[in-house]
Simulated assay, not measured.
Amino acid sequence: MRRHYGMDWLRIGAFGLLILYHIGMVFVPWPFHVKTAQPFDAAKVPMVLTNAWRLTLLFVVSGYASRALFARSKSLSAFLRNRNLRLLLPLAFGVTVIVPPQSWVQLVTQAGYPHGFGYFWLHDFFRFGKVHGLALPAWNHLWFVGYLWLYTLALGLLLLLPQRERLQRAFDVAFGGWRAVILPIAWLLLTQVELFTRWGDTQDVIGDGIAHLAYFPAFLFGFGMAASFPVMRAIGHYWRPCAVVAALCIAFAMAVEIGWPGNALPPPPLSDLYQGLRYVETWAAIVALIGLAERYWNHDLPIRATLTEAIFPFYLVHQTIIVVTEYALRPLSLGPAAEFAVLVVATVLGCLAFYYGGRGIGWLRPLIGLRAAKRVVEARPATG
């Protein structure tokens, strides 16, 4: 595969937006691991910009990246070994080391947990039960890594099928032309609205079946799209009208958030329309963003390679930095604007320190999602 720089930029942007979204979660009334002492309900309105499509987009770009990795692998088994190491090791390290401060802050601020972090980590985090109503151990934002690993294993089973090239040809036919837009929207409306009603995710592998019906096909779509000229051509043709549709859906969602503040929902049939348009917006926005990446972002810059490598370590650690920083800011009563600015700066600096500090330590690199350092073997001088 030829490298598509636009999709690299889209992946970087998708994770960057997710980090900003998680900072915003501190201020809005939606459940989160730590909440500001000065809620700012109006923050929900800009968060609506990405609320519907941010996670589905992550699975699409992850599927695309997986195809690039598969194309560079010597075999299917080599591809799966690589994905096991690059996903399972950071997941285990994250659950053991990175996530526990989030759970401790959540219990202290929301349940009156009386003990310090050291006691909590040694005695309660690995209890495999509930502590003050919170199930532990938790993986919090790292559920995405777990889901991605499971979807990669399922993909591996599909790639074991004989004459797997036929699957790619079938994908090209099924999603060529207008079908690249309409069929995914129809699938989302059928599975997320008509057959089942999904407003959010449980982040529980076993109990999150409805979300799997959205995320796993999105991952497979990204994998197939990476080698499909007909589908990329269709997206290049339809991305502008999709951008208009997504913008109209976002405007409607913003109006709902303004009209029904807090956690309130409008009454039926307006709530039904709101839910349906969320999934129309999801795929329309994704098509529009891929089209933008194809049309305008498919060029390289010196910083791209570093950001491409850094974005996964950023994802691993960002939420813990947000939660711990907000815990320290709560007593200061800075006000929402100042608090948001401090959180952004602290998160960026913390992520940079985590990445640059970890990438120089050979044994730590695989634990934070980086490739193992290449060994340099010095040639011995010839002896006579």
Rank of each mutant, 00 (worst) to 15 (best):
F70V: 02
H237F: 14
K44C: 10
V108K: 09
E339T: 11
L55S: 07
F216L: 14
F32S: 08
G116F: 08
Q163A: 13
F252R: 05
P101A: 10
R169N: 02
I23L: 08
R11K: 15
R179M: 10
V61C: 05
R72W: 00
R179I: 04
H22R: 07
E281D: 15
P29V: 12
G112I: 12
V95I: 15
G13F: 10
Q106L: 08
F340M: 15
D124W: 04
R198P: 03
A353D: 06
D208N: 13
L343I: 09
L76A: 02
L160F: 05
W121E: 06
P366W: 01
A310G: 12
H115A: 15
R72H: 09
Y113D: 05
V348C: 03
L142Q: 02
G276Q: 10
P269C: 09
D272E: 14
L307M: 09
F144E: 00
Q163H: 11
P217V: 07
L18E: 00
G146D: 03
G369K: 05
R166H: 05
L10M: 08
Y279Q: 07
L349C: 12
L20D: 00
L270D: 02
W199K: 07
F171M: 06
M254V: 06
R3P: 02
V317M: 10
L158N: 08
F354C: 02
A218I: 01
I290G: 00
V342W: 03
H141M: 04
G357A: 08
F59H: 01
L248N: 09
V324D: 12
V193I: 11
R3F: 07
P162S: 03
F59A: 01
Y64P: 00
V342R: 09
W363R: 02
P114D: 15
Q102G: 04
Y356L: 15
G133W: 05
W187Q: 13
A285R: 12
L273T: 07
Y215C: 03
P184A: 06
Y147I: 01
A305Q: 09
R198F: 00
R330P: 01
S62L: 04
Y147M: 08
C242D: 05
W139D: 08
A251G: 12
T96V: 14
W30K: 13
G176E: 11
L69S: 09
G236Q: 11
P241A: 04
P184W: 02
R371K: 15
L316V: 09
G369F: 02
L17G: 04
V256P: 02
F27S: 00
L153T: 04
R54G: 01
Q319H: 06
T96F: 14
A341D: 12
G369W: 06
N298L: 05
L17C: 04
T109C: 07
F27P: 07
E194A: 14
V231C: 08
L10Y: 03
F15W: 03
T109L: 00
P31Y: 12
V193P: 05
L292R: 08
G116K: 11
A379K: 11
T282F: 03
W187I: 06
